[in-house]
Design a protein around this nucleic acid. Sequence first.
DNA 1: TATTGTTATACTCTATAACTATA
DNA 2: TATAGTTATAGAGTATAACAATA
Lengths: 162, 162
Amino acid sequence: MTADNTSPADNRNDSQRKSKGNISTGFLSELIGYQLRRAQTALFQDFSTVLGKQHITPGQFGLLVRIKYNAGISQTGLAKAVGVERSTLGETIDRFEKRKLVERRKHETDRRAYALYLTDKGETFLQSAMPLIFEHEERVTRCLSSAERETLIGLLRRIADQ
Amino acid sequence: MTADNTSPADNRNDSQRKSKGNISTGFLSELIGYQLRRAQTALFQDFSTVLGKQHITPGQFGLLVRIKYNAGISQTGLAKAVGVERSTLGETIDRFEKRKLVERRKHETDRRAYALYLTDKGETFLQSAMPLIFEHEERVTRCLSSAERETLIGLLRRIADQ
DNA sequence: TATTGTTATACTCTATAACTATA
DNA sequence: TATAGTTATAGAGTATAACAATA
């Protein structure tokens, strides 16, 4: 791929044209960033069809799982772990608390901090979501062999971990 | 991976723990959706460090490229191509127009529609962003061989295209 | 002084619904 | 009737900055 390859006729690898509006995406289709974005959009849409009724997004699901496996974590600790600001996370926790999925308890030693826990309702919610998550995972990777699936997850992990 | 493997001690593959807050992510690290999300976050951050000063995001960049390669496209056509609502895209085009990157002209035959074009400033902007995009692409995939990079892009494309 | 959490503010992305102009 | 675009409204994610309480 070269930076000069910007002719309007350069649509050879434009696999997007088959289903969407049939428009050219130029050199985008050769970018990892672009295909990553497209894949994530596809996954998000599948996730929404099965878990949208529960009013949960992939990001929120990840938060609930982290609270489950790190019971008592502080908001700042959780915010750092997922890479968002404390103020952003605070509002998300507000919404979880309104839905009775997460509980803020007083931290035992640090009186400035909260300790976050799943409520029983939160635990149940996660438990009931689990089979849907695994079905979702199966469905979005059904076009790959087991080996390909492992390859993909390994490559993604290396990119994310660098 | 089994749905029952939810013990708090199940952190074997939790590569996230090394750099972030060192908290457990449970079974998340075995999900394609999770690793896809992490990889995209990493790419987004790298993109922002090189193109954030230009006040452009990956999504906006994709729109500008599509307008370049589909000069005269309508807002509805572009909205369908990227999978967002007309109202959402309209506001984005508003901002592009304020920045003089995109121009709304009257459609030649359909008087309800606009025809979208990059302005000269928009063309120049895209041209100057190009080398940064390719450097970004190189940087985020430097941990992969050429073959691995091709494998990854192919696997992502298959997931997105299904 | 530094940190935890909240609040105020702002911008973007996202969608739905109602509206107008036109097809 | 249907479509192109706008506007109003709403919710969520994102951030920065200032603040009170506490470490």
